[in-house]
Design a binder for these strands. Structure first.
Lengths: 205, 205
DNA sequence: GCGATGAGTTGCCGACCGGTAACATTGCTG
DNA sequence: CAGCAATGTTACCGGTCGGCAACTCATCGC
């Protein structure tokens, strides 16, 4: 344990070769998302990935390290999704917010959707697990900050409040999606609600 | 296993005697709420309750049975809380909804608040755990139904949509409360958002 | 004082948890 | 082909999980 850290960067590193590490990681992400972090053991992961525990511990320091990486990956994907939705309407913050909720509804229609991975993790992890909870906290604060920024760009009367209201609607959609399948849940009412609160905060006093 | 079901109804049944079963149950509820269902073992419960495993299994059929009872109790308490908040403004559905969100904000100010126990359980339990997931599902449907009813009583243009929007705000508050402590989170923006969406759905169009 | 009942104690079970050692196998590359 | 790195196999460790048997102790009404 000196110069190299994990042997991930190989000299050869060919093209699309399916590394065992990647297979395990993707399987783990899938299982964590579907059954929760505490609900999935290392054995279940490697079995589902068609591998074994030794290969797991050659690629990951511990289960905890895997969980951390899982959350980081989820955050990465989430912001990529966010940026893609927002990028379609540059300079139009109101339309951007609507696009976010449209995209959320689209995702919610998938059977695999189980709401927000980061938010769900917040339910399972306790406050004394610093690394994980700080990660989730930072993510949520970033969501709040971005929504606040968009509300401000709209010229809202109280940008902080409008941003917070939008966040409630967003997370409400995530939370309810856990119970109501497909598009049958309250999440389908998100867009009109979004428009209503935006209108209220943009109305001339 | 024939006539009696659990031996709860005793012939003597004195006054305020602290039954071990009750002590264990209250401890379990507290721990489940704070650390999640999967995050608390039977040993931890009985240790915290100052009892032991045998006393536990004399009072409860299994941990699963305890969890079921925990969720039922949470539901009972939730509706009691709901009814109390609503009862202050009979015949005024709009004011009732506002009172609900006021009461939610009040609870959110407590350090012990970790959002919605039933909703949090939905994150941890998988769909194949029929008893639990059906219980949570029924609860959420009931929330939705009640909000729909209140929206209808207000004379909203689209009562279903308004009820769903309110539910998103309600559950959004629960979900965000897991991360943001005390009154520092977006939940403080719930009330103005509620008023905005209600206004929008009541506006003469 | 008696027995009934509730509750605590010790100890154990099989299963699974996260994690590891030693060894066998594959497969690519020089 | 040799050699080496990546992967798979088996067995194991200590700990904890949910759950149970057997015994003891305390209380309380008769």
């Amino acid at each position: 344990m000196s110069s190299e850290k994990s042997g991930t960067e190989m000299p050869c590193a060919p093209g699309g070769k399916t590394r065992v590490r990647d297979r395990i990681f993707e399987t783990a992400c899938d299982l964590f998302y579907r059954h929760g972090i505490h609900g999935v053991g290392v054995d279940a992961i490697v079995a589902e990935a068609g591998s074994n525990k030794m290969s797991f511990y050659r690629s990951f320091e511990s289960k905890d390290a895997l969980v951390t990486e899982y959350l980081r990956e989820q955050e990465r994907e989430y912001w990529a999704w966010w940026d893609a939705a927002v990028a379609r309407f540059p300079g139009d913050p109101r339309r951007q917010v609507e696009a976010l909720f449209e995209a959320q509804l689209e995702i919610a229609k998938s059977n695999a959707c189980r709401g927000c991975a980061l938010g769900n993790a917040a339910v399972e992890i306790s406050d004394d697990e610093d690394v994980l909870s700080n990660l989730v906290r930072a993510y949520k604060q970033q969501v709040r900050k971005r929504l606040h920024g968009m509300a401000q760009a709209m010229g809202a009367r109280d940008a902080q409040s409008l941003g917070d209201a939008l966040m409630l609607l967003l997370d409400g959609g995530h939370f309810t999606r856990l119970i109501f399948p497909l598009g049958s849940g309250p999440i389908s009412a998100a867009l009109p609600a979004v428009r209503a609160v935006i209108n209220a905060y943009l109305a001339p006093d």
